[in-house]
Simulated scan of single mutants.
Amino acid sequence: MKGVLLVNLGSPDSTNPKDVKRYLDEFLMDERVIDLPWLLRALIVKGIVLNTRPKKSAEAYQKIWWDEGSPLIVLSKRLQDKIDEHTDIPIALAMRYGSPSIADGLKELHEKGVTQVLLMPLYPQYAMATTETIVVLAKELQAKNYPDMQIDTLPPFYNNPEYIKVLSNSIHEALKDKEYDHLLFSYHGVPERHIRKSDITNSHCKLDKSCCITPSPAHEFCYRHQCYESTRLVAERLNLPENKYSTSFQSRLGFDPWLQPYTDRTIERFGQEGVKNMAVVTPAFVSDCLETLEEIAMEGEEIFHENGGKDFTTIPCLNDREDWVQTLSNWINQWVNKP
Rank of each mutant, 00 (worst) to 15 (best):
S210C: 15
H194R: 07
H182T: 06
P100L: 03
L141M: 06
V234W: 07
I48H: 03
G10C: 05
S210G: 14
I213N: 01
G113W: 04
K144Q: 04
S170C: 10
Y180T: 00
F255R: 15
L40H: 10
L293S: 05
L167P: 00
M128H: 09
T314L: 11
Y262F: 10
R22Q: 09
Q226G: 08
M120G: 02
W335N: 00
S248F: 01
S101A: 02
A174V: 13
K176L: 15
K2W: 01
D320C: 10
L167Y: 08
I164R: 02
P12G: 01
L175D: 08
K46Q: 08
V135C: 12
D35N: 08
C205D: 09
K197P: 12
Y61E: 02
C227M: 08
D199F: 00
G308D: 03
Y23M: 07
P215N: 02
R232E: 05
F221R: 14
H204Q: 00
V45K: 10
K107H: 06
H194L: 05
V20T: 03
G309N: 07
L207T: 13
H225D: 13
K276M: 00
D25Q: 15
G69I: 05
D320A: 14
E236I: 09
M95R: 07
N277C: 02
K310A: 12
S168T: 14
S287W: 12
W38R: 15
K165G: 13
Y158W: 04
Y126D: 09
K112W: 02
I171T: 10
S210P: 15
T247C: 07
W324F: 07
A143L: 09
T87A: 13
